[in-house]
Nucleic acid binder design. Structure first.
Length: 593
RNA sequence: UGGGGAGUCGCCAAGUUGGUUAAGGCACUGGGUUUUGAUCCCAGCAUCCGAAGGUUCGAGUCCUUCCUCCUCAGCCA
């Protein structure tokens, strides 16, 4: 007998393997944590870190978060949650020209919406890189003092030329050998605003001949007179990402610094920088380590910041939260749910291989959680009239009304049933009647039988067309002993089962039917302009007839409209007693298509 | 043509120090249940791991060569 294979749990990946090994070997067990970020001395005075690991999610507040970020958020926060660690939520705000409070707010909202918190045991782990500017400045002086950095007077253009190419080594700057004293004084003058933007720059002194271009004396501090959303006008020099990020990680005692593949080439510099600062006694050890994974690519979607900004600014969509956009704000309005993203990230895994995930995977994840969590309701989206000619009328000729009972969730009887009123005139779906049925069609046809879901079996007796030749009204007669839920209701078996809403009781409202924003799997692939791949029919706004109970829906209430799909009451455009609905995703449809 | 990565079923993705029948999910195809053509259930689905050689009793896992794709030359992140 062979040992039973234990299936690898969904969500296992190479990064988790690294974390598990590090914990097992106690790589980070001696770390101390002073309760807040800081340098070596600061943490040395702290307690042994109660967090086994520390990860971080470090967005730059220069745009809205999108679905790709969800992968990173679940990875980082998930790792912390699963391994008794803490995940820091840190704004990487080192370039004031592109950043703003609006983005800080929207990003915070998105992270919260996904279900994560940066509060851990009474400690807030919300941080801003800009809060470390003093420490970063000190780190830069430390580098200078130890001969690891110098102030360059070359122009950006000169630097570019001197950097060499992918195949040719670069050349040393003529300013590379300035003395420590001169560098220090120049750097201080930079800080004190004595020099014009771009006239001087601080560079790491590594190797202009390195085959890794990132090691050819990278720029680490530039002069930039710009108002910062957090520090105001305090600084006129700002650190570059390459310099700032490793330091942020180290000050926060991050153990596993996880980023995307394009930063792989940066890792040698990450280690170099932290190594120099640690040997100067500035940073606590052990130092953080950077690991890279493949960023998310989704078919039928664009996730580049630039393209998303274009779509918004050029009004191809209504705003950052347009339900067709892959932003988290848009996904939320569309009716996507956080648990769906969790399922999705578990399902697609984490690796270093470039990959394109089929968009339907995401939709399936949403269907899966929505099927479980959404109550059912009835909606007729493309109505035509069905008249039950033999239905009872009162003496005054008005139709009688009777209650039908519809379960709120077929898989959860404990959620009970609701009343749906039935009367003589109903709205039914245009596509549920065919004058001349195609093969395999088993809904309403002339002389045919069909069940009105939760009501009676009816027989079609005729139909009328309007001037344009379209069917406008269908006539039928009901079979009295067939009401759903009554004894013997199944005496007559019919395959077709259609939904309906009483005309006299219907709630008429706006419903938006969304489809994918792009008609091509890879927008802009080849030499096409991605804007030409926009789907002109990405949204259809209709007036639908809904069952009366839907009038009471609150913003963000989600339902399955039976036989159609999942819908959400729009959180922005719904007003009291007048909710409007967005289609999140359709049901799977084995018929047609 | 320099450096750094990646290539396992249509789409993802596990594959311990080489050990012998190549996980799992999604999709797909059959069949069953069903008052949503939904859900659910059951079954099937890579003699093969980018290619070619080699080492070995034994290779997706080691060696050699080759091919393809991604990425780096911002005072962006």
């Amino acid at each position: 007998m062979s040992a039973e294979k234990t299936p690898i749990p969904l969500g296992s990946n190479f990064i988790r393997a690294i974390v598990e090994k590090d914990i097992e070997q106690g790589v980070y067990s001696t770390r101390k944590w002073a309760g807040s970020p800081g340098d070596a001395a600061h943490h040395a005075a702290g307690q042994p870190d109660p967090a086994k690991i520390r990860t971080r999610f470090p967005p730059e507040p220069n745009g809205y978060l999108h679905i790709g970020h969800a992968k990173s958020i679940f990875l980082n926060f998930g790792l912390a949650r699963d391994y008794a660690g803490v995940c820091h939520f840190r704004f990487d705000d080192t370039n004031p020209e592109k950043e703003s409070q609006e983005y800080v707010d929207s990003i915070s909202d998105a992270v919260k919406w996904l279900g994560f918190s940066w509060e851990n045991n009474g400690e807030s782990n919300l941080y801003f890189a800009s809060n470390y500017f003093d420490l970063m400045y000190r780190a830069a002086e430390s580098l200078i003092e130890n001969g690891h950095a110098y102030v360059d007077s070359q122009t950006a253009e000169e630097m570019r030329i001197m950097r060499g190419t992918l195949t040719e080594a670069g050349k040393n700057s003529p300013w590379r050998d300035r003395t420590v004293a001169e560098n220090l004084s120049l750097f201080r003058e930079m800080r004190d605003g004595k020099h014009a933007d771009g006239s001087l720059i601080l560079r790491a002194k590594i190797d202009m001949a390195s085959p890794n271009i990132n090691l050819r004396d990278p720029a680490i501090y530039r002069i930039k007179r710009a108002y910062h959303h957090n520090t105001g006008d305090k600084w006129c020099i700002y650190p570059m990402y390459t310099f700032a990020h490793p330091i942020e990680d180290a000050l926060e005692q991050i153990t596993h610094s996880i980023c995307t593949l394009e930063f792989e080439d940066q890792r040698p510099f990450y280690d170099w920088l932290l190594g120099r600062l640690a040997e100067a006694g500035m940073l606590a050890q052990p130092l953080p380590k950077q690991y890279e994974f493949a960023r998310l690519n989704l078919t039928y979607v664009v996730l580049s910041k630039r393209k998303l900004i274009d779509l918004v600014q050029d009004h191809h969509v209504s705003g950052w939260d347009d339900p067709r956009l892959p932003t988290l704000a848009g996904a939320r309005r569309r009716g996507y749910v956080a648990e769906g993203f969790k399922l999705f990230t578990d399902r697609i895994g984490v690796s270093k291989a470039d990959s394109w995930i089929e968009y339907t995977i995401l939709e399936d994840c949403m269907r899966e959680v929505l099927n479980e969590s959404s109550e059912r309701r009835i909606a007729v989206l493309d109505p035509i009239k069905l008249v039950i000619d033999n239905y009872a009328v009162d003496a005054d000729g008005k139709s009688q009304t009777e209650d039908c009972f519809a379960p709120n969730h077929p898989l959860k009887p404990e959620l009970g049933k609701r009343v749906v009123p039935l009367s003589r005139e109903l709205w039914i779906e245009r596509e549920d009647f065919m004058e001349t049925p195609s093969k395999g069609y088993f809904r309403l046809v002339p002389d045919g039988l069909v069940r009105l879901r939760y009501g009676y079996v009816v027989k079609c007796t005729g139909f009328e067309k309007d001037a344009a030749g379209n069917v406008s009204t269908v006539h039928c007669e009901y079979l009295p002993d067939t009401k759903s839920g009554t004894l013997g209701s199944d005496s007559i078996k019919v395959k077709g089962n259609i939904h309906w809403v009483s005309v006299a009781h219907a709630y008429e409202t706006e419903v938006r039917l969304y489809d994918r924003l792009f008609k091509e799997a890879h927008p802009g692939a080849g030499d096409r302009d991605y804007l030409n791949d926009i789907n002109p029919n990405s949204v259809t706004v209709i007036t639908a007839q809904l069952e009366p109970s839907l009038k009471d829906a609150n913003p963000e209430d989600r339902f399955q409209f039976e036989r159609h799909g999942y819908f959400v009451a729009d959180r922005k455009d719904s007003v009291a007693d007048k909710p409007v609905f967005n289609r999140t995703v359709t049901l799977r449809d084995a018929w047609q298509k």
